[in-house]
Computed example of a mutant assay.
Amino acid sequence: MKVGFIGTGSMGSLLIESFIRSGAMNPGQITASSRTLSKTERLAASYPGLCVVPSNAEAARGSDLVFLCIKPLDFKHVIDDIKASVQPETMIVSITSPVLLAQLEEWLPCKVAKVIPSITNYVCSGASLCIYGSRFGPEDRDRLEGLLSHISEPLCIEEKYTRVVSDISSCGPAFFACLLQRFVEAAVQETGIDPDDATALASQMLLGTGKLLTEGGLSPELLQSRVSVPGGITAEAIRLLNHELDGTFNRLIRTTHAKFYEDVEKVGVSFLIH
Score class of each variant (00 low, 15 high):
residue 213 L to Y: 01
residue 225 S to C: 08
residue 221 E to M: 13
residue 203 S to L: 13
residue 231 G to K: 05
residue 208 G to Y: 04
residue 199 T to K: 12
residue 223 L to A: 13
residue 207 L to Q: 14
residue 212 L to C: 11
residue 217 G to N: 03
residue 215 E to N: 02
residue 197 D to H: 05
residue 230 P to S: 11
residue 221 E to D: 14
residue 209 T to Q: 02
residue 200 A to H: 03
residue 228 S to F: 05
residue 228 S to R: 11
residue 221 E to L: 13
residue 196 D to F: 11
residue 230 P to E: 11
residue 231 G to F: 08
residue 202 A to P: 00
residue 214 T to N: 08
residue 202 A to D: 01
residue 208 G to M: 03
residue 227 V to G: 06
residue 202 A to I: 00
residue 202 A to R: 01
residue 208 G to K: 02
residue 217 G to A: 06
residue 221 E to K: 12
residue 215 E to V: 13
residue 195 P to I: 07
residue 195 P to G: 07
residue 200 A to S: 04
residue 222 L to F: 08
residue 199 T to F: 04
residue 198 A to S: 10
residue 223 L to P: 05
residue 224 Q to D: 10
residue 227 V to P: 03
residue 211 K to N: 01
residue 216 G to A: 09
residue 204 Q to G: 03
residue 231 G to M: 10
residue 200 A to I: 03
residue 229 V to Y: 06
residue 216 G to D: 06
residue 223 L to W: 14
residue 231 G to I: 07
residue 226 R to E: 15
residue 221 E to V: 14
residue 196 D to T: 06
residue 213 L to R: 01
residue 228 S to W: 09
residue 195 P to Q: 07
residue 212 L to I: 02
residue 220 P to Q: 15
residue 231 G to V: 03
residue 201 L to A: 13
residue 228 S to A: 15
residue 206 L to A: 15
residue 201 L to H: 08
residue 221 E to F: 12
residue 216 G to T: 08
residue 220 P to F: 14
residue 207 L to G: 05
residue 196 D to S: 13
residue 212 L to D: 01
residue 218 L to I: 05
residue 204 Q to C: 08
residue 220 P to N: 08
residue 202 A to F: 00
residue 226 R to G: 06
residue 221 E to I: 10
residue 218 L to T: 04
residue 220 P to I: 11
residue 204 Q to L: 12
residue 221 E to R: 12
residue 221 E to Y: 07
residue 222 L to M: 10
residue 221 E to S: 13
residue 210 G to K: 05
residue 216 G to C: 04
residue 207 L to H: 09
residue 224 Q to V: 07
residue 214 T to F: 06
residue 205 M to Q: 11
residue 225 S to W: 07
residue 223 L to T: 04
residue 231 G to N: 08
residue 219 S to H: 06
residue 224 Q to Y: 06
residue 197 D to W: 08
residue 208 G to N: 03
residue 222 L to D: 10
residue 212 L to N: 04
residue 198 A to F: 01
residue 215 E to D: 12
residue 223 L to I: 05
residue 221 E to W: 07
residue 197 D to K: 08
residue 212 L to K: 00
residue 195 P to N: 10
residue 223 L to R: 00
residue 218 L to K: 12
residue 222 L to W: 03
residue 196 D to P: 01
residue 218 L to N: 09
residue 197 D to M: 14
residue 200 A to E: 04
residue 224 Q to K: 15
residue 207 L to D: 10
residue 220 P to K: 10
residue 202 A to H: 00
residue 199 T to P: 00
residue 204 Q to W: 03
residue 230 P to W: 10
residue 196 D to H: 10
residue 197 D to I: 13
